[in-house]
């Protein structure tokens, strides 16, 4: 693990990262949205939607753990709960032993996130966007400038694009800038929320290679959400299928396929077969937080 983590994490946190095997522990967590609110008391029929329903998972240090689910299944809500962007109704989440609610600053120093949208200041250049992130994470700017060029080039972004506005770049390129932003802060836990959705095949391959490198070369633990069965199968050490906020099955991709094949008397099965069996449907869209808008 290079520089930033060593610089920014306190001694106790560094000890916990070194000593513990449990990178992420999600323990009976629940999250609902909607219903009556102090700000909208006139909405009498407001429906409360359970987005995450008694979810318990554990991710080991250095593991790539996949969460497979349709849109609206609760994947992104779970990511936001881990990322300190949402408060759970009950249950707990710890990242290397730090509680995400009570010890949010310590957790925030250890993780970063790449979501389906690049979420960058579009008129700013990648360099300006990433220097902003570097300052927020106390990464020395001089070193960050060197790292930004190096990381961007490693991700296949030309050096001369680093100073041009993000809105002149393709979506795939923008996503690489978002990945570089996350990598710049050297997270020990990386939350990847559908990072390849909407990307062209070439960009998708680049991002998938980046995910492998992140684990192998940077010793990061990765939680990856996806609704791409192939991607999950080739990248994840273990995965869980989430449906209507609940984890319905968990295991290694091979284990899940073998169990399905055995149950159905087949020679072999695909991960899609497993997904269809446990969810009973395809990948329809429904936004789990839509009720809060």
């Amino acid at each position: 693990m290079n520089g930033v983590v060593e610089l920014n994490l306190d001694r106790e946190t560094r000890r916990r990262i070194k000593d513990t095997d449990a990178a992420l522990v999600v323990n009976h967590i629940n999250k609902s949205f909607g219903g009556k609110s102090l700000l909208t008391p006139w909405k009498k029929d407001a429906k409360r939607v359970k987005a995450v329903d008694d979810v318990t998972i554990g991710v080991r240090r250095g593991e790539i753990y996949g969460l497979l689910g349709a849109n609206g299944s609760g994947k992104s809500t779970l990511i936001r709960l881990i990322a300190t962007l949402l408060l759970p109704d009950d249950g707990s989440v710890t990242v290397f032993g730090h509680d995400v609610v009570r010890e949010a600053p310590a957790v925030q120093r250890m993780l970063n996130r790449v979501s389906v949208e690049a979420s960058l200041f579009k008129k700013l250049s990648p360099m300006e966007n990433l220097i902003y992130a570097a300052r927020l994470y106390s990464v020395p700017v001089g070193r960050a400038k060197q790292d930004i060029v190096r990381i961007m080039e490693a991700l296949g972004v030309d050096r001369d694009r680093v100073h041009k506005p993000v809105d002149t770049m393709s979506r795939g390129m923008q996503q690489k800038v978002a990945i570089a932003r996350a990598l710049l802060t050297s997270p020990v836990l990386m939350l990847l929320d559908e990072p390849t959705t909407g990307l062209d095949p070439r960009s998708k391959k680049d991002v998938e290679q980046f995910i492998r490198d992140l684990r192998d070369e940077h010793d990061a633990t990765i939680l990856l959400t996806s609704h791409d069965m192939h991607e999950a199968e080739v990248l994840c050490d273990r995965l869980a299928i989430i449906e209507k906020g609940r984890i319905v099955v968990e295991g290694t991709p091979q284990q899940l396929k073998d169990e399905y094949a055995e149950r159905h008397g087949l020679a072999e099965a695909t991960l899609e077969d497993v997904f269809m069996e446990y969810t009973g449907h395809g990948l329809e869209d429904e936004d789990e937080e839509g009720a809060t808008a």
């Binding site: 936001r80 979420s119 579009k122 992130a133 994470y137």
Partner: peptide, 14 residues
């Protein structure tokens, strides 16, 4: 509007 609010809010600044 820029879509960056979650990234600023999850950064380790007070």
């Amino acid at each position: 509007w820029e879509g960056t609010i979650e990234y600023t809010m999850m950064s380790p600044i007070s």
